[in-house]
């Protein structure tokens, strides 16, 4: 993880001086160059398009879902999806054991995964970034302390601790989000620490210090903008991590509770009938897989795009 580079070193950003400029071609800034590289990067494009698709699905769920995701019907239980033996035109992806429309539950399930992924990522991002930047900028005792806290956190079995806290606190969407947010900041702290250490020794930080800028302003206007690239990359990977963990908690029965349509919970419910109706676990599992794959490809791709020289 330490190979992440906050900014491409010694990039030829400076526009060619004077008359040598090509007419009609504006001097491209770093963001414009990044945008151009992103558009050419397969992983970034695939990840971004799929992620946007899932986000759109989550927002438009009430419009897209053909049925109420919670309404049960005993007469329409376990209908096959459209590729199955006995499909039904009303239920494209079939129905579950309680006769609920699987497609509608899948569409609403995107809301759960994305909400948990985003909120947990923001909480852990704030905690981890604060710790990492403080450790990297100040060094010394603060650095030792943060390293100790991160080591401690890494020593705790994360799934078991999350399960135990949810079991005591009572499972709800809010509890799951908070637990994941407060457990997953370790990678943010590690990456932000090393990114800040790289930036700290640059002349512009020394210049800001010499001008007598308060630390808070140095961090906000000199450090953070320069570690933003690394931050975005970790944020995507941690969002994927949170989504996978929520699914695992819900699968084990200590996450989102029924009848809420969470993909992990749907796999768990479908498990009882999976030997006869394998699509019950195949569909929600595949959705999780594709969503997490898209987010990971986006994160990995952004790393390439932002620091093509640092690719290993």
């Amino acid at each position: 993880m330490t190979d992440m580079q906050a900014a491409p070193a010694a990039s030829p950003t400076a526009p060619a001086p004077g008359p040598g400029k090509v007419p009609g071609k504006a001097p491209a800034g770093p963001w414009a160059r990044m945008r151009r590289r992103s558009l050419r990067h397969g992983g970034v494009m695939f990840g971004a398009i799929v992620l946007l698709g899932f986000i759109a699905m989550a927002f438009l769920a009430p419009l897209l879902a053909p049925h109420d995701p919670l309404s049960q019907s005993l007469s329409t239980r376990l209908i096959d999806p459209f590729w199955g033996a006995k499909p039904h035109p009303d239920h494209l992806l079939g129905t579950d054991q309680l006769g609920r429309d699987y497609l509608s539950r899948m569409i609403y399930g995107a809301r759960i995964s994305l909400t948990i992924g985003l909120v947990a990522m923001v909480i852990s991002g704030v905690i981890g970034t604060a710790m990492g930047v403080a450790a990297g900028y100040f060094g010394g005792r603060i650095d030792h302390f943060v390293t100790f806290v991160v080591t401690t956190r890494l020593s705790m079995p994360v799934i078991l601790v999350a399960l135990a806290v949810v079991a005591v606190a009572g499972s709800s969407l809010t509890v799951v989000v908070l637990v994941l947010g407060f457990l997953l900041w370790d990678r943010f702290a590690v990456v932000m620490r090393s990114a800040t250490r790289q930036v700290r020794d640059h002349e512009y930080v020394a210049a800001a210090q010499a001008l007598g800028m308060p630390v808070s302003r140095i961090v906000m206007s000199e450090i953070l903008p320069n570690v933003l690239g690394a931050l975005i990359v970790v944020a995507t990977l941690e969002m994927a991590h949170a989504i996978l963990l929520e699914a695992a908690l819900s699968f084990l029965g200590l996450g989102v509770q029924p009848p809420t349509p969470s993909w992990g919970l749907m796999v768990s419910e479908g498990r009882k009938a999976m030997f006869f109706k394998p699509w019950l676990i195949a569909i929600p599992g595949a959705a999780l897989f594709v969503l997490v794959l898209a987010i990971n490809l986006l994160g990995d791709g952004l790393r390439d795009v932002m620091a093509p020289e640092g690719r290993s």
């Binding site: 994927a240 996978l244 796999v267 599992g285 594709v290």
Partner: peptide, 11 residues
């Protein structure tokens, strides 16, 4: 990395 562990186990 993208495959949920419980899903991989069930498959």
């Amino acid at each position: 990395q993208a495959m949920p562990s419980f899903w991989f186990a069930l498959l």
